[in-house]
Structures are given as structure tokens and as C-alpha cells.
Design a binder for these strands. Structure first.
Lengths: 212, 212
DNA sequence: AGGAATACCTACCAATGGTAAGTTTTATCC
DNA sequence: GGATAAAACTTACCATTGGTAGGTATTCCT
């Protein structure tokens, strides 16, 4: 069981060194991740077979499974890689996390394969034994924290209702993002980004209560 | 009710006659639907096998497949039946559809199995060849229409911002419902209903814009 | 060059969804 | 109250797929 690295999740706070691999292997690994996403985009998540992914990169099933513990693990890693790459998730304290989330929503409107994969992994990972369980959990946690902080900053700046519960608003923003993506999968004419911005504007409303 | 329908989806506009079947079969069919939901609740969607469902009702796999075209079809029918039963979906014009949706969200907080099944089917059904594709599409459509009408009624009553786009608000409500359920699956301590109500209150806000 | 770790393949297995074809049960019609 | 047609099943059986075991070839470091 070689896998000191494979399968085990390394969160943002983890500093473990990656398992040493040969250059060729590292390249192949990346290639697999890219191919997997492409295959999902073409045939959908549940119709994406290990065999087809393997074919796409000139390997056998077993060859692919040399890099990933399982199909589920592979799919989860696609997400993780993507997540780390375009840094949508763990937004550092500098940028505005709410704006960043909005941008991510907008961007996702161009990658249906990724959206489907994301939704699918999130649901599957509900099972505690799923390889991405901890990942998704941590991701949600980090997102909530980051967004809540963004809300607090806006409250200080006066661009968000002072009585809003930052954590609740964070959860609302995430729910909107996830939920709109679900709808969008069934109707890609939906303007996810527009609806998201509209909703968030209303939620963050800094206007004083109506004189009742 | 339309409980005697099977296999093929009959939307609101369909008038086809139900396939005739014996009383015993009808009972068995119900039993299977209930058992399927129970199995999903226990082991999760992807770990719910036809075999186990069959065992639960004293049949073989093939026996179950006599009633449903496929596993996916079975799962979709569980949703459909449930949908028709507690009438959450096609809310008639009488009640307030927004309140109704809120109640459904609250109720779903007690049935994790159903929530998981629902989410899973919605994602799977993105594929046009999925047996529940048309169902989910129609369901979304009907929900949007119903909720949008609810928003309009509130606007007339002065309990919703007059400038709100009813359809957009409808989509927002659905997204919140779906998205919160996704989060809730990973953290059942989340107060779905509370967050949902909070968000909708903010979105529907009828307060006048702040004097900028 | 030597040697350890990696990269990768060839079988092989078990589980699962699904089908084909037949047998038994159920209700209906003379 | 049997004949009969349809529904309610069952017993094989198949194909796909994820995954494993174990071996061979390749890479890289010293």
C-alpha cells in the first residue's frame, strides 16, 4: 500500500510534502485529471468510465488506478485540483470573498462538466467513508468562514446591513451558488450570475427598515 | 389521485390511461417504493442496490424490475410519488406557494434519505436520456411558475418589493432550498428552515430604497 | 552501474444492472 | 367453473465496471 499521499486529504493547513514521484508520473497524473474532466463534460458523471479516461491518456484502468485509489477518489481530486488552481475556495483575506464567489459563479457558467462533477461529488461525499468527505466538509467550512468575514468587512464599511448574521449570509450565498448551478444544469439559458448578484444585493441590503 | 400511473411520466397535461394491473401488483409496487426510500435513507443513494431493495420486499432483482424500467427509474418514481403525495410541487393557486416551500424545507429537515435521493436524481436527470429528465424539468418549471405567481400576489398585497422580478425571485427561492439541503446533508445541525426564512425575508423586502 | 521506488500491464474477480424466457398466479369471460 | 389472457413473478444468464494481485519495465538517484 504505497499510498502515504494518495487518498488522504491535505487541507489548506496541511504542510505535508507530496510523495515523491517521477516527472513522467507527475505529468501523467495531471493528464489524467484533465482527461477525466473532459470525459465528464462529454458524457456526464455517471457515464464516465475508468476505461474511457484510461483510453484518453493511453493507459489501462489499472494504470489510472495506480495514481488514484478509486474512481471516486479521482473525481474528487479533479475538484480539489481545480479548486486549488483557480483559488475560488479559500480566498485569502485580501480580496472580497463575496465578489470572488460571484465571479466563480459567472465563470462556472462556461464549464458544465465541472459544475456537474462538483455537484455530484458534493452529494456523494455525504457518506463519511467517501474519499472526499473531509475535503467537502473542510471546503464548506473554509468558504463559510471566508464569506462571513467578507460580510463583516462590508458591515464595517456600511455596505451590508449591520444586523445581518454574517455566518447565515455566508450560508445563503453558498446555497444560492450551489442551487443556481443545479437549476442551470437543467436549463443553461439561466443567467446564474445575474440572478446570484440580484439575490445577494437584496440580501446584503444596507437600507434602513421601512418606516412602518 | 394519480397514484396508479407507472413507468412513463405523465405530466399535468397528459391524459393517458393507466396500465391495468392487479391489486396484488399495485400493493407490491407501493411496497417497493417505500422500501427503496428506506434503503436509501440507511445506506445512501449510491450504496442502495436493487438486490437489497428486492430482499426488503421479498422479491428478486428481476421481480423489482418488473415494476420499474431500471434502478434509475425506480428512484425517480420514489421522488415522483412523494412529490405527488405531499403536494409540495405543483402548488395550486389557493395557498401561498412561498410559505408552502418554506414548510417543505422545514419538513425535509427530518428526512435525510429523501433529501439525498432528491438531490441525486436532480443531478442525474440532467442527462436528456435519463428517465426523470422530463419530470425534473417540468417540476422546476411548475415550481418557478407557482412561486412567481406567489411573488406577484405578494407584490399586489404590498408584502413584496414592487420592483422585484417574480421569476428571478422564484429561482432564488428554489436555489436556496436546494442549496441549503446540499449543505445540510453535510452538516445536519444547520437550521435550514431558519436560514431559508431569513433569506427570503430579506429578498422579498418591501422597504423603499435607502435615501442615498 | 546498481538498486530502490515508480510506472504500468496482464490477468482476474465480484458486484451490479439488466435481459430472455419460462412458470405460476390473478382476474375475467363465456 | 373451467378456459384464457394478462400480470406477477422466478431462474438462469450476460455485459460492464470498479477494483485487486502480482509481475515486468522504467526512471532516477548515488
Amino acid at each position: 500500500m504505497v499510498s502515504f499521499i494518495r487518498g488522504c486529504y491535505r487541507g489548506p493547513m496541511s504542510t505535508e510534502v507530496p510523495a515523491r514521484r517521477y516527472a513522467k508520473g507527475e505529468a501523467k497524473r495531471r493528464q489524467i485529471l484533465i482527461a477525466a474532466l473532459a470525459v465528464v463534460a462529454r458524457h456526464g458523471y455517471r457515464n464516465s468510465t475508468l476505461q474511457e479516461i484510461a483510453d484518453a491518456v493511453g493507459l489501462t484502468k489499472a494504470g489510472v488506478l495506480h495514481y488514484f485509489d478509486s474512481r471516486e477518489d479521482l473525481m474528487a481530486q479533479v475538484l480539489r485540483e481545480r479548486d486549488a488552481h483557480d483559488g475560488t475556495a479559500y480566498t485569502p483575506a485580501d480580496g472580497d470573498s463575496l465578489t470572488q464567489l460571484g465571479r466563480t459563479v459567472e465563470h462556472n457558467g462556461s464549464v458544465p462538466g465541472l459544475v456537474q462533477l462538483y455537484s455530484q461529488v458534493v452529494i456523494e461525499a455525504e457518506a463519511p467513508e467517501h474519499p472526499a468527505h473531509a475535503f467537502v466538509r473542510d471546503r464548506y467550512g473554509a468558504l463559510v468562514a471566508s464569506l462571513a468575514e467578507g460580510v463583516r468587512r462590508r458591515q464595517r464599511a456600511g455596505t451590508a446591513g449591520p444586523d445581518l448574521d454574517p455566518v447565515a449570509v455566508a450560508r445563503i450565498a453558498i446555497a444560492l451558488s450551489d442551487g443556481l448551478q443545479l437549476q442551470w444544469l437543467h436549463d443553461q439559458s439561466l443567467d446564474m450570475s445575474g440572478v446570484f448578484d440580484t439575490a445577494m444585493d437584496l440580501v446584503l441590503e444596507a437600507r434602513p427598515p421601512r418606516a412602518s
